[in-house]
Simulated assay, not measured.
Amino acid sequence: MSGSKQQDLVAKLVGTAAALAAAWLAQKLIAETWKARTGHEPPRADDEGDHGLTELVAATALTGAIVGVARVLATRGAAKLTSNDGA
Rank of each mutant, 00 (worst) to 15 (best):
M1N: 11
M1Y: 10
M1F: 11
M1A: 14
M1D: 11
S2Y: 10
S2Q: 07
G3R: 14
G3M: 14
S4R: 14
S4C: 08
K5V: 15
K5Y: 10
Q7L: 15
D8A: 15
D8G: 08
D8F: 12
L9S: 09
L9A: 11
V10C: 09
A11W: 00
K12Q: 14
L13P: 06
L13V: 15
L13S: 15
L13W: 10
V14S: 07
V14N: 03
V14C: 06
T16C: 05
T16D: 09
T16N: 10
A17M: 08
A18L: 02
A19V: 01
A19D: 01
A19G: 04
A19R: 00
L20V: 08
A21C: 07
A21E: 04
A21N: 02
A21F: 06
A22P: 00
A22L: 00
A23F: 00
W24D: 10
L25V: 07
Q27Y: 14
K28D: 06
K28F: 08
K28V: 06
L29M: 08
L29S: 09
L29C: 06
I30P: 00
I30T: 02
A31E: 01
E32P: 02
E32S: 11
E32N: 13
W34N: 04
K35A: 11
K35W: 10
A36I: 07
A36H: 12
A36Q: 12
R37V: 07
R37W: 08
R37Y: 07
R37A: 09
T38F: 08
T38W: 09
G39Y: 01
E41R: 15
E41D: 15
P43S: 06
P43H: 04
R44L: 14
R44N: 10
R44C: 12
A45S: 11
D46M: 09
D46N: 10
D46A: 09
D47H: 13
D47A: 08
E48C: 13
E48W: 11
G49M: 07
G49P: 00
G49L: 14
G49A: 12
G49R: 12
G49H: 07
G49T: 10
D50Q: 14
D50V: 07
H51C: 06
H51G: 03
G52K: 04
G52N: 07
L53H: 12
L53Q: 15
T54Y: 08
T54P: 04
T54K: 14
E55C: 05
E55T: 04
L56K: 12
L56I: 11
A58V: 15
A58W: 04
A59G: 03
A59Q: 00
A61I: 15
L62S: 03
L62A: 07
L62R: 03
T63L: 04
G64N: 05
A65M: 11
I66D: 00
I66Y: 01
I66V: 14
V67R: 01
G68R: 02
V69Q: 04
V69R: 03
V69A: 09
A70G: 00
A70W: 00
A70H: 01
R71C: 06
R71K: 15
V72N: 06
V72R: 12
V72L: 14
L73T: 03
L73K: 04
L73D: 01
L73H: 02
A74S: 00
T75H: 06
G77I: 04
G77A: 06
A78C: 03
A79C: 11
A79M: 13
L81S: 05
L81I: 05
S83M: 13
S83N: 13
N84T: 15
N84A: 15
D85L: 15
G86V: 02
G86C: 03
G86R: 04
A87V: 15
